[in-house]
């Protein structure tokens, strides 16, 4: 055990996890503190024409703005750790209640998109790197460039236009009933999930391809060819084991990207998820709700990035087997 703790890999991993935790802590501080950036009186700014002295006082009291900032922050953070994220300014319902089902819906959409996107992207990325400059590579390159260049919402509308309105294959807007059977839910979620899949796989396969292409230029790949190995074996035996780390990092980074892509896609399909809720809250300036949603997004995002770093560390043979 003592030996394990002394290994540089474990040390680096622990350090990375601590940095991740620290980052979340700092981000929570920023999320809560941004409100202080606002010049002047936040209550009047938010309430606008309805700002009477009385309503302003009530507003400040509700947000606790009459107390010192640090005291408020730690109370908010403490409550958040216990699952209490305050009450909505608009509907006066506990934020956690509003969020619960939305988070589940978003997670369902994200997982569905990831399940489709990851294998597709890896396959395309590996094939185009292996057959670099072939017709297949070029076709994939042009398609992914188009997917990356098209705004996310436009891709969503194109899906609606061609797969829902013109052909009637899928429902254009997502009506999610949490009690519905799984297949029904998937059916309702197919279009937004497909859209997300297209976006994410485009980024992911491009990154996979470029990290593999860089790898193929290493001398040991040339050596494997000079030993007389077939191309397929060179790729599978010599390139891919070294690419596992970088590819895993690419996947997790893109999962983080997918997470934020959800915000726009949910708006296009009126999908009742966390992103949609946050966009509405922003429009209504429902600040506790926006802060809570930001905190949840940021936590997932930082966790995925931390995971990417940890994977990068544990897949590096130079770190795993120290010099003797």
């Amino acid at each position: 055990m003592k030996d394990l703790m002394r290994s540089p890999v474990v040390k680096m991993m622990v350090a990375r996890l601590l940095i991740g935790l620290g980052t979340i802590a700092v981000i929570s501080f920023v999320i809560y503190g941004v409100i202080e950036l606002l010049p002047g009186d936040i209550a009047r700014e938010v309430l606008k024409s309805q700002a009477t002295d009385e309503s302003v006082r009530a507003f400040n009291e509700r947000l606790g703005l009459d107390r010192p900032f640090l005291e408020r922050y730690f109370e908010w953070l403490g409550n958040a750790l216990h699952g209490d994220l305050g009450r909505s300014l608009i509907s006066d319902v506990p934020v956690s209640e509003l969020l619960a089902q939305r988070v589940k819906n978003s997670a369902f959409l994200a997982v569905l998109a990831a399940v489709l996107a990851v294998p597709l992207a890896l396959l395309l990325g590996i094939l185009s790197a292996t057959f670099r400059n072939s017709v297949f590579d070029r076709a994939t390159g042009i398609t992914t460039l188009a997917c990356v260049s098209l705004p996310e919402f436009a891709l969503g509308y194109l899906m609606i236009l061609f797969l829902a309105v013109k052909t009637g294959l899928f429902p254009s807007l997502s009506v999610i009933d949490p009690g519905a059977p799984l297949l029904e839910r998937i059916w309702q979620t197919v279009l937004p999930a497909l859209t997300l899949t297209l976006i994410v796989q485009a980024h992911m396969s491009r990154m996979t391809r470029s990290s593999l292409v860089a790898l193929f230029q290493r001398p040991y790949i040339e050596m494997a060819e000079l030993k007389g190995l077939r191309r397929r074996k060179v790729v599978w035996r010599h390139a891919l084991p070294n690419a596992m780390g970088p590819i895993a990092v690419v996947i997790t980074l893109n999962m983080a990207y997918l997470l934020t892509g959800i915000v726009v896609i949910e708006a296009v399909f009126a999908y009742p998820g966390l992103g949609q809720l946050m966009v509405d809250a922003v429009a209504r300036r429902d600040i506790p709700l926006v802060q809570a949603a930001s905190l949840i997004f940021a936590t997932f995002y930082v966790s995925l990035n931390t995971l990417a770093d940890v994977i990068g560390i544990v897949t590096n043979p130079r770190l795993l087997y120290a010099r003797k």
């Binding site: 001398p219 040991y220 050596m223 000079l226 030993k227 007389g228 084991p241 070294n242 043979p317």
Partner: peptide
């Protein structure tokens, strides 16, 4: 290759697969 004609590279450190 390998069975009839083989190769020894300049930079052994880069020519061995690190994995």
């Amino acid at each position: 290759r390998s069975t009839r004609i083989a190769y020894v590279a300049q930079s052994a450190a880069a020519s061995f697969n690190p994995a």
